[in-house]
Structures are given as structure tokens and as C-alpha cells.
Design a protein around this nucleic acid. Sequence first.
DNA 1: ACATCCCGTTGACGGATGTCAAAGTCCTTT
DNA 2: AAAGGACTTTGACATCCGTCAACGGGATGT
Lengths: 228, 228
Amino acid sequence: MADMAKQLAGIPLFSGLLQAQYEALSRISLKRSFLKGERIFSEGDEGTGFYVVAGGRVKIFKVSMEGKEQILHLCRPGETFGEVSVFTGQGFPADAVAALPTTVLFFPRAAFISLIRQDPALALNMMAQLSKRLREFAGLIEDLSLKEVPGRLAKYLLYLGGLDRNDAVALDVSKGQLAALLGTIPETLSRILTKLNHQGLIRSQGAQIMILDRRGLEEIAQEGKRLP
Amino acid sequence: MADMAKQLAGIPLFSGLLQAQYEALSRISLKRSFLKGERIFSEGDEGTGFYVVAGGRVKIFKVSMEGKEQILHLCRPGETFGEVSVFTGQGFPADAVAALPTTVLFFPRAAFISLIRQDPALALNMMAQLSKRLREFAGLIEDLSLKEVPGRLAKYLLYLGGLDRNDAVALDVSKGQLAALLGTIPETLSRILTKLNHQGLIRSQGAQIMILDRRGLEEIAQEGKRLP
DNA sequence: ACATCCCGTTGACGGATGTCAAAGTCCTTT
DNA sequence: AAAGGACTTTGACATCCGTCAACGGGATGT
């Protein structure tokens, strides 16, 4: 139980809480594991609580009638998902599937809310979490509506390359999933990658991509410059 | 001061609080008014607090390099905006402009946070507010990515018509703004409205629109049926 | 080693939508 | 009433992107 508390302390949502809170949290939480591809919940399911990713990765997404999917978020360890329905009382707004072998902690709604009532720090953390997600979504909406696919891809590559100021980046998702993340389809993504290669902006080989011209990518990502 | 408290009680964010909280809220809030078209804040501005619409309407939006705008949300009386930067501590994630002559209440960040620490009900309300917005954004992302413009328009018309089960709806925004809300441009919106008229699904005349074929609109909105 | 399958790539094609230009309409102002 | 301006509509056009189809390659399992 003590190491459980230590594990919880490393999660942003639970940072800076009192010791008693960690014990309470570990008491109410349930550990669940999923195989890669296994569904965690579906859109519309009743939300009886929310989740924190302990290990693996969880894909939150919407699916169209024709089967095309738009990824809303890829949750990595320490991130939460399913919180929305805890506070609105409605069903989950999207689907959740394990994108890798995944372990999550589940926090039942009622018990968690009563903890929030007791500890304002937990409430503030949760609000920060929701706000961060809201900001991300606003960015995604902006990208989908105001940028073309090359712009979104360039932005993503720069994001990957900006993490460690490294020009050699490795895609951490399959290209099909990257397409769904960028709001397009694998064919289009493949064509644009080819163009970027041809233009000398990147050199890509499988999931390994070298950023050759940062400035060029920035022009595409920010100013919407066209690819010849 | 007493009527101020009464006014606050009508706002979802502040529902169900203790009397003392209403007094505290009115003490820390600032009333501000804006002319139609006046800017309330810009993306990136430091967020020193958040707002509640008292009267009028506030447009929250993103603008592309080329000047196209995507409306994220039209805030009506009782709704909040600018909360995200209160909890993330970063700048505002979008622009805010008064879409009508507008009055807002401004709540400075530090004072509001200290109120949250004192009243879990306020915290829970705020989380519900954030969650509701998150759900909306998820829907907008889904629409932008997975639906075509006719689908988004049909959904919007059905939304307007569904409020009072009335088949005679009146657009409450200009067509240019509606286009920005749907993630398109006025020309495209105009063409699609013409098509819907021609198809006998609606009969539109200026801002007045008669829904003639609900089922037909639903097919377009949900199943992505094409317009001939 | 071979077959199979999944993923990614490439090509041909069409449709939806943004761009540019111009005309038309409505409302406000003078 | 006339004039001006903003909003809306319509047309011609370009292009991005999704669809369909076929191919290639690497991984897995028999």
C-alpha cells in the first residue's frame, strides 16, 4: 500500500496531496489491465468513474459512420481520461481503446467526488488537468479547421523534434494512427511525407525521420506555405 | 449587493453555494462592458482571471494566418470563458470579442482560487463547467474531422429546431458567423443552403428557416448522406 | 522456405470546398 | 429618397483530399 501511494504521488493529478489522501486514493482505486486493442469503454457508456494510465497507452477517439476515426488524444502514463462524464453525469463522450498493453487505475465516481470535497488541492489539480485538455482540444480544432494536412504534419514533426532539440525523430505511433491523429487517412499522409522528402525538408525511412530544414517546416506549419 | 447575489445564484457555475459565498463573489468581481465588436482579450494575453457573461454574447475564436476564423464557442449569458488560463497559468488559448453589446463579470484569478479552496461546491461546479466545454469541443472536433459541411449545417439546424420542437427556426447569428462556427466560409454555406432549399429539405428566407423534412436532415447530419 | 496478413506506398480519379470576382440585397446614414 | 456599406449570393475556377484499386515489403507462423 505504501508503494502504491508513492506511485500516485508521481501523477500530476495527485501531486502535492496530503499523505492521508494518498491512502484514501489507493483504497478507492481499482487496477485494471488491457491487452493491446482491447476496448476500455465506448462512447455513450455510463461513466461510473475515471481512469489514470499507469502504463501503456490509451487511445481516445471518435468514429464516423463510415469507419474513419479521429483520435482526440493519446493518453500516456500519468494522464487521465474519462473525467468528463464524472462531472457532467452523462455517458462517455468518446471511445477508449488500449493502443498498447495497458494498465490503468480506475477511480469510482462517488468515492472520488467525496475525496475532492475534502481536499481543495485535488480539486485544483483536476481543474488544471481539464484545462490542459481543453487547451489541447482548442489547438486541435484550430488545426483541423484552419490548417491543411501538411501544416498539421509539419507541426507534429516539429513537436517531436522540439522535445529534445533533436533533429532525428522517431514516430511513436504507426503511420495509420498518425493519420487518424492528424485528421486524415494513411494514403494522404504517405503522399505528403513523400513530398516533404522530395523537397528536402526531411529524410524519412520507416518510422525514423530526420528533420533537415526546421525553418521550412515552420513555414508550412505556421504560415500555411504550400508544397510545390 | 443583495441583488448582485441573487443574480449570481442564477449562474450555473455558482448554483447551490452558501450565502456567504455569494457575498464573497460579489466582493471580488468586477463588472465590465463592451461594445459590439470590441475585443475582450487576445490569444496569448496573460490570464489574470476569468469571465462570466452577464448580458450579450461573446465570441471565442481562433484566426488563421490568412484571416479565416474558427469560432470555438459563442458564450451566452450565464456562461463562463477564460477559465482555462486560470488553472494552467498560461496565456489565453484563443481570442474573445463581444459579438453583441455585452456585459461581463470578471473574477480575478487569485481571489477566485482562494474561494474555491473554501467551497468544494464551487470547485465541483467549475469542473462540471469545464467538462461540459470539453464535451462540446470533442463534438466539434468530431464534426470538423468526420462530417462534411452539409452534415454540420444540418446538425445545427436540427439543434435550433429541437430546442422548442419548432419547425420554424431563426438563425441567431449572421450567416458569415454561422459559417465560421461550422468551420467553413460564407460562400460554401450559401451554396449548401441553396441546395437544401432546392431539395425541399428546408425553405429559407434570410435568417428565417422552415424545416420541411426533419428525417432528411437527420440522414445528412448523422449518416453523412450526400446532397445530389 | 513458403504462405499469409497487415501496413504502407503509389496511381488514377472525382468530388467537396476554398479562392477570386462580380452582382445583388438589405440596412443604415445622410 | 438617395447613397453608402456590409452582408449575401452566384459563377468560374483551382486544388486539396478522400476513394478505389493494385502493388510491395516486412513480420509472423506453419
